[in-house]
């Protein structure tokens, strides 16, 4: 594979599937946020302007549901990818290439904070994914499930109240709103800050789009062999 690389040190960090899914989530999540916020803060002028563009609340509702379906589809595909990784590629879910949290993440966190405070001379050597990236990933993965479940309750209230008490719809409404705000704040501020505004990659880390990163930029251990 090495001969296709634009530069000697770059490695393939994200497969085409993961790049593609990231693009889909970017579009889907932004669509969800724009339509959802316009409903939640419908009195504000940007919301009114956006609703006008969407052809009223019915159009926005349709866009919201379409975005929800494609965004949740990416969660399902990621779940299937874990199975494929484990059973077909024979990858180790606890290995250094895995996105699953490990004990090393806690040590890295402690090390990194020490580095920020000046008590440690060097930044930690992360595995393929640093604890920051893992938080980013799992925040979305778990968040999309809560949003999906509460969203389904709000989408099909007649069906769910056949076997759940009515106040679950109110609960779903509250949870859907606060989880949405949390997700939006995390994605648009923390995620973009942690992924792109780090000194090593500033102004932007393009590896999720190009699939390639130099070992130094990705923050991972340069001695770590690329996964076969």
């Amino acid at each position: 594979m090495q001969e296709h690389h634009p530069s000697e040190t770059s490695v393939i960090r994200f497969s085409v599937l993961h790049r593609f899914l990231h693009l889909v989530v970017m579009v889907g999540f932004t669509g969800l946020a724009a339509t959802g916020l316009s409903l939640a803060f419908s009195a504000s002028w940007p919301a009114r302007a956006f609703m006008w563009l969407m052809g009223g609340s019915a159009g926005a509702a349709w866009v919201h549901r379409a975005c929800a379906v494609i965004t949740y589809a990416t969660v399902v595909i990621h779940g299937l990818w874990f199975l494929y990784y484990k059973w077909v590629l024979r990858g180790r879910l606890t290995g250094p290439h895995s996105i699953l949290p490990s004990l090393k993440d806690l040590k890295d966190l402690r090390h990194n904070v020490g580095y920020f405070l000046g008590t440690r001379p060097q930044a930690p050597q992360f595995d393929k994914f640093s604890y920051m990236e893992k938080i980013d990933y799992w925040a979305v993965f778990i968040g999309m499930n809560t949003m999906g479940i509460t969203g389904l309750l709000l989408w099909f209230p007649e069906f769910f109240t056949l076997w759940l008490p009515g106040f679950f719809i109110n609960l779903a409404q509250v949870l859907h709103f606060y989880e949405a705000l949390l997700a939006i704040v995390i994605k648009f501020f923390i995620h973009i800050g942690m992924a792109h505004l780090r000194p090593a990659v500033y102004p932007a880390d393009m590896s999720i789009f190009t699939g390639r990163a130099t070992a130094a930029h990705s923050g991972s251990n340069p001695s770590m062999k690329p996964e076969q």
């Binding site: 594979m1 296709h4 393939i12 497969s15 085409v16 790049r19 593609f20 789009f209 190009t210």
Partner: peptide
């Protein structure tokens, strides 16, 4: 596919890589 004879995973990976690099 581009010198890869064995692994279907690698072949698909290399092909999709080429498609991605063409589209973008």
């Amino acid at each position: 596919v581009k010198g890869e004879d064995e692994s279907l995973h690698q072949k698909i990976g290399l092909t999709s890589e080429a498609v991605w690099n063409t589209l973008f």
